[in-house]
Design a protein around this nucleic acid. Structure first.
Lengths: 335, 335
DNA sequence: CTGAAAGCGCTAACAC
DNA sequence: GTGTTAGCGCTTTCAG
């Protein structure tokens, strides 16, 4: 109390052993060029003094912080938190720490986040979000820091990314319903302007519809649903639109729709079927359980981080755009 | 490409304007002591050169990193991610960045996390977990870094913390059932050795039982349930134990029990009632919806971080052990 | 109001 | 093998 307990520095260790800073630095960094005897002396001095290298000083001198920035929309969203779990585990495996920032999927916040992270001299950046704005892209490129997108699309494929084939997955889901004779398929999206919603999910849906010879009915497309509540509120409109099945981009939203529909007396899957797209715990806790596209969330994050470690090591990537396989999980909400 | 785009340094700015480093530093840090005219010149030079202070260098020189460490069990657990959301928002508000580490609630991992974070010279630490081991406590105290516990108990109250009164809440829930004439109350816990489970949740349960003159039946206490699956697997045993109601410490677990019970034909709440303790989205998506103790999760995190900012500013705390109010949310799983 | 100078704790050539 | 010497980019006295 009151005693400023100044941490031992590399200098203290050097003095204690009677060697130079350089030698201590060498043993700390595992350099070969140290005589075993001196190494041992240094090591025990380190232990005695409780010396721990100051990562900040190290970062300044070496220009590597062993820290990666992670930009995500919302950590309370299971989809993103599972991606991030994969990111975090691999980051730790490679000895990186994670500087995490929530953006609420807001490009403005993403922009400040990226800049701020860059100021902290992160060695790499992992970006997640339904959209990568031009400003953010520019900010990222201005930093010279390697980036990988996880579960997020980028037009022009200018940045490395790890995803599933969203368009194909949505086309497949849509087509499955078509094959089963359903024609009025509601599509629930998070936005009416984000690339992932429009150019991938909706595009897949439209593609399948077109191939199935079914005319697109805008009245069956519902954009802007972000939460369980939103889903629940949408139930009535979906019912009114005469949908025979609904395809929802998010599990919580899907569950909201499901419960909303059931609360108003609709039978699922007998009168209306539902499929969601993230296969989080929410799909399993629902009654009936919700059929879903299963994205390998943890793996997307893990692979993305692995790519980033390669980039940070100046290695080249075998493929910049990694597309992981998805599967369809059949549960009780579909027949 | 190839051109090493060296970021402008404070030195470049100084040279461009024709002033000293000190002056640039002053305007960057908003010091009063700069003539408006020079300030403007410096500011425009900064803009032109796109100068951004290197936070690492700053951290080394000032011994402040404006970074806080957050140690949490699992970001895919809604309880913790909502706490962390509160932490993150307040941290941003006060211009701190968050270095996040998952521990899986493992004391060993918590220990390395704390040490590692300390090496990075964090200005403060936010700790979450069902347990604060002696080693971790020692490691924290060895660092001299201010700490606040969020949603986590510490015996002896040696560290500042923000919580609800878990014991009281569990006693209240238990007593409510007792008042309603229920006598066989199952208690589902996460562990049989962690303080928060034993000294708070179980203690509250036992207290109410004792006051109600009901003998404790160890056969009604189920420890070690961590997931939805665990809850589901527990349903049969709970039913066999003849429970009239169940009190679960976690929402996902509670939902597992609920679905397990219903899947085996039990009527909730008619034949058996259920109450959970975190009031996350899982309680609302259940059918029937689950009654729950509502902890102000976001606020616990937010208040904890606010306390930490005070500590980091060397301010004293009005109260070190903050106890936030909880409420009981009555839904359909209880009568 | 502004500049000079001394570090912060460590890495990284470069000598010996 | 080990030591010397420069910095990394910035803050912070201390002068003036």
């Amino acid at each position: 109390m009151g005693e400023e307990k100044k941490n031992a520095t590399i200098y203290d260790v050097a003095a204690a052993v009677g060697v130079s800073l350089a030698t201590v630095s060498r043993v700390v960094n595992g350099s070969e060029n140290v005589r075993p005897a001196t190494r041992d002396k240094v090591l025990s001095a380190i232990k005695e003094l409780g010396y721990r290298p100051n990562a900040v000083a190290r970062g300044l001198a070496s220009k590597k912080t062993t820290t990666v920035g992670v930009v995500m929309p919302d950590m309370t969203n299971l989809f993103y938190s599972e991606l991030t779990r994969g990111i975090d585990d691999v980051a730790n495996m490679y000895q990186y720490d994670v500087l995490l920032t929530n953006t609420d999927d807001d490009p403005k916040r993403a922009l400040t986040a990226v800049r701020n992270l860059a100021d902290k001299q992160i060695d790499g950046l992992l970006f997640m979000g339904s959209q990568l704005s031009d400003e953010v892209l520019a900010a990222i490129q201005a930093t010279d820091v390697p980036v990988v997108l996880a579960g997020s699309v980028n037009h022009g494929r200018v940045l490395p990314s790890v995803n599933i084939d969203y368009k194909k997955a949505f086309a497949e889901v849509t087509d499955n319903f078509l094959q089963a004779g359903k024609k009025r398929l509601a599509l629930v999206l998070g936005s009416d302007d984000r690339a992932i919603d429009q150019d991938y999910r909706r595009a897949g849906y439209e593609k399948a519809l077109a191939e199935g010879g079914i005319a697109l009915d805008e009245g069956l497309i519902f954009a802007g649903a972000r939460s369980y509540q939103d889903g629940q509120n949408l139930a009535e409109a979906i019912e009114k639109a005469g949908a025979e099945a609904v395809i929802a981009y998010d599990d919580e939203v899907a569950l909201g729709v499901l419960n909303g529909l059931q609360d108003m007396g609709k039978k699922v899957p007998d009168e209306i079927e539902i499929v969601s797209a993230n296969n989080t715990t929410f799909t399993m806790v629902a009654r009936p359980e919700i059929s879903s596209i299963d994205q390998p969330k943890y793996d997307i994050g893990a692979v993305a981080m692995r790519l980033l470690t390669k980039l940070m090591d100046k290695e080249s990537l075998d493929e910049e755009q990694v597309v992981l396989p998805y599967t369809m999980v059949k549960r009780q909400s579909t027949k």
